[in-house]
Amino acid sequence: MTAVAAVETVPLFAPVDVGIRAVSKAALYVVIASGLSLIFGLMGVLNFAHGSLTMIGAYLGGAVMVATVSAGTGGVARFVLFFLAAAAVFGLLTGIGAAVEVALIRPIYDREPLFQILLTFGLVLVLDEAARIVVELAGLQPQTEWQDAIGTAPAFLGARYDILGVDTRWGLYAFEALVGLAVVVAILLFLGETRYGLYIRAGSEDAEMAQALGIDIRRAFTVVFGVGAGLAGLAGVLLMWDPRFGASVPLSVETLLVAFIVVIVGGLGSFKGTVVAGVLVGVVDALMSWLFINVVDFPGLPELVLFAVLVTVLVVRPKGLLGVAEVGGH
């Protein structure tokens, strides 16, 4: 396919198609990156295991849904079960994250950041291999999306609809956008209206000063690491129903890369920056994916452009769009 020939076949409603995909991807990327953003912002810890927690969340959410949904389960009941599964996974991974912070991360705070990177990278290897073993023991293919879990979605989300001349999964994308919006609002309320949110915002700027004001910053670290891990799991539950992602072991690396791009482009220590960058990256990704499918025969186009955005931001504005600290200077 040549670019010139392909342009002549561009659908009339291409902007609508790109728009709905961009909205859903932006929502997913914000949810994927939000936990990493909170942890990175307050603690300066590069949690490489973030993607692994998302992957585990996808499998755990999928397991709950597969175990509880039958052919006769109605659409509303499936939604209710989804939110119960999301709450359970969030709670479980928050607890696990808090335990990991206390047992593994806390003892190496006084060391070079390299130690934290090596530790969390080690966690990636352990968690991903453990997931691969469990998934294979369960008789599933670890490399491909878990279709049984995708199949537990209500028909409304699984079906394609032709609206405004665009035949796509309107229901799924709208659902993802709404959940993403709810997560963003919840986090903004947490950061803006609660005492712990205030601690996190202050600690992101100056953790030592926060301690000198009587704040137990170590406890705040534990809470934030736990909540960040819980949010990673929540993102996994949301991805579990989306055929573009689905529960699979490679989801770990796939989501980790996106999360890093969004957090760095948005700026360290700024959740609002993460939201803005999530939207930017979602729009760029959707646009480039559409170009690849319809115009340019180059499969790596979305990734290439996303990394170009990342490199450009690092060179031109190392603080990111709304960051409070430079990458590497936190």
């Binding site: 704040i215 137990d216 170590r218």
Partner: peptide, 8 residues
């Protein structure tokens, strides 16, 4: 002692 305890 931790700094936050002294501050408190």
């Amino acid at each position: 002692r931790p700094t936050h305890e002294v501050a408190r």
